[in-house]
Design a protein around this nucleic acid. Sequence first.
DNA 1: TTCTATAGTTCATAAGTTACGAACTACCGG
DNA 2: CCGGTAGTTCGTAACTTATGAACTATAGAA
Lengths: 128, 128
Amino acid sequence: MHTMRPLIHPSIEDITVEGILHALSDPVRAAIYAELAVSSGATCSNFLKISDRDIPKSTLSQHFRALREAGLIRSERQGVEMRNTTRCAEIEQRFPGLIISIMKAHQIQAAERLRSVKHKPNNKSRTG
Amino acid sequence: MHTMRPLIHPSIEDITVEGILHALSDPVRAAIYAELAVSSGATCSNFLKISDRDIPKSTLSQHFRALREAGLIRSERQGVEMRNTTRCAEIEQRFPGLIISIMKAHQIQAAERLRSVKHKPNNKSRTG
DNA sequence: TTCTATAGTTCATAAGTTACGAACTACCGG
DNA sequence: CCGGTAGTTCGTAACTTATGAACTATAGAA
C-alpha cells in the first residue's frame, strides 16, 4: 500500500540547461510542451493521442513528471484532474531566448515534415 | 577481426532538433561542443580531462560519435589524429538561433556556478 | 619492411534509464 | 458508502550508456 508522493517543482535556480534539453529531446514531451505553451491549463489525458499515436497513460504520467522535474511545467490538482502550465516566463528570465528558439526549431522541423509528406505521399502516411 | 566503419555525417536535412537537444543534454558533450565552437580543429584526446574530471578514451570516442551523428560536428582524420569542427553555420541556416541560445544558456549556468562556488567555497571544491 | 608509439574505434558487458500493464490513490457526485 | 474519472506507482522488460580490453590506423625511425 503506497502513498502518493507530492509533486516536485524545482525552484528556478535549480533548473539546469541539461535538464531542459533532455526533457525536450523527446518528441512526445516536446509536443506536450508546445501544446501547453499555446493552450495553457491542459490536462494529462488531453494527450492520450498525439499526432495519431496512442500514448498509454502511465507513460504520459511519466512524461509529465519529467517535464515538471526539469522545471518546464507546473502541475496543480484541480478537483479530479491536473492543470498544467508552462514556466516559460521564469525560464526566459534565467535563460533568455532558450525556450523560444527550441520551439521555433521544432516548428521549422514540423513544417518541413509536412511539406515532404505532401510531395511524397506514401512516406510515413498511416493506412487505415 | 573487425574493420573500422566509416564516419557518419548526416546531411543537413537529416539533422533533427531532438537529436541536437539530446546530444547537448549531456554535460561532457556540451563542454566538448562549446570548446570546439571556440578552438576549432581540436582532437579527441584534447578532452581526456574536462573540468578536473578524467574521461576514459572509449567514452570520449562515443561522445564524439554522438555529436557527429547528431550532425553537430564534422570529424576528419589528419594523420594519426582526428580534427573536429562544429557544423554551426549549417545548423544556423536550418534552425536559426538554436545553437547560439543553447550555448548562451550554458554560459549563464557556468557563470552562476562559479559565483556560487566563490560564495560558499567548500561547495564542490576538490580537495587534493 | 618491420618495429614502436600515438590516436582513436570496437566489442562485451555492467550499470543506468525508459516504457507500459496492472494495481493502486485521489477526488467528486450521488 | 458506491461508481466513475483522472492520474500515480510498481515491477519488469526493453533500451541506452559507460568503460576496460583488445583492436585498427597512421606516422616515423631503424
